[in-house]
């Protein structure tokens, strides 16, 4: 049986050769196995560089920004979270289903390079595979298994939707979700804090923010041409870097993403100062789920609750009035 990577390359070559798509967006390996970059193939030959590894972290749906109908169809490799981002963008009229050919990859989880570096010498790592409950790391000295719990990214450990919900073709077989019940111990820890403790925790984090906007620019759902935090006229937020301004920026972003974030972990992963952005967005997602029974990216027909008005909303229907 051909492996997933071979299958992927064959699929992409066929799509380009037949003219069905103009471009393929996938992943390629850099000099080290854990340096995986987005790869943009426009010829069948360029498909030979495509890879699928547990380091294929980027949410490639982000690179569909600005795609115009006349650009033709683009094939994109999507994991569970990435496919949800496609649905979310379609629901928000940023994309149509016809513009993309989705190559679905059931995802066993991504390996967190920082966690890996604490356990093995990164320079020695030749290959890493996720095999159910364990992650196998191969170095020159042989293979060593680790519990998946110790090496996977936090967002993957709590993932409820590892299989792409929308796709044109699926590579490999569906995998069992690691967290079908939606348990999030880290989130419980934050929720269990007193409001003062929680504020201290997040403000300490926000004090570290250097306002590089990597979180914004990596996010598939942050598609504003100019982020409110970077806008000049009017200027909503000073450009100065300080805990208060950073807090306004990060909380503003969290509000904008409430009910829209697909929990791909992109912002959290790319933050150079380790802001707990996954937790912040997971908290907002939970609030929206509880208040509106909405989970972002499950349904391309369903716009995010905070972007809609419905007179049958539970709050309105039940006569709740917050001014009272």
């Amino acid at each position: 049986m051909p492996n997933q990577t071979d299958q992927l390359r064959e699929t992409c070559k066929r799509l380009l050769e037949s003219g069905e798509v103009k471009k393929v967006i996938g992943y390629r390996e850099g000099r080290a196995p854990y340096h995986v970059s987005p790869h943009f193939a426009e010829t069948p030959e360029e498909c030979d560089a495509l890879v699928l590894t547990p380091f294929c972290t980027q949410n490639l749906v982000r690179y569909l920004r600005g795609l115009k109908p006349e650009d033709g169809k683009v094939a994109v490799v999507v994991k569970g979270c990435d496919a949800r981002a496609v649905n979310a963008l379609i629901a928000e009229h940023q994309l149509t289903r016809e513009q993309v050919y989705l190559i679905g990859v059931p995802c066993q989880g991504l390996v967190d390079v920082d966690k890996l570096a604490k356990r093995v010498n990164l320079a020695q790592v030749q290959e890493v595979r996720v095999e159910g409950a364990q992650v196998v790391v191969r170095t020159a000295e042989g293979e060593q298994p680790f519990p998946a719990q110790d090496l996977l990214e936090d967002c993957c450990l709590v993932c409820e939707y590892p299989n792409p919900l929308v796709h044109d073709q699926m590579l490999g077989f569906e995998v069992a979700p690691r967290n079908p019940e939606g348990v999030d111990a880290e989130l419980e820890r934050i929720e269990a804090m007193s409001p003062e403790e929680r504020q201290e925790y997040f403000r300490r984090a926000f004090s570290r923010c250097i306002r590089c906007y990597a979180c914004v620019r990596t996010c598939p759902l942050c598609y504003c041409t100019t982020c409110f935090a970077q806008q000049n006229k009017p200027q909503w937020l000073p450009r100065s870097v300080g805990t208060d301004e950073n807090e306004m920026f990060q909380l503003g972003r969290a509000m904008h993403l409430a009910g829209r974030c697909v929990q791909c972990g992109g912002c959290d992963r790319v933050c150079p100062v380790n802001l707990p952005l996954r937790l912040l967005n997971a908290k907002m997602a939970r609030e929206i789920r509880e208040a509106f029974a909405h989970v972002s990216g499950l349904d391309a027909e369903k716009p995010p609750p905070l972007a809609t008005f419905d007179s049958q909303d539970r709050d309105i229907a039940e006569g709740n009035n917050y001014d009272r």
């Binding site: 987005p38 982000r62 590089c212 990597a214 620019r217 990596t218 790319v270």
Partner: peptide, 8 residues
């Protein structure tokens, strides 16, 4: 191609 335009 892969640049997202952040300041990192």
């Amino acid at each position: 191609e892969a640049c997202v335009g952040c300041g990192v």
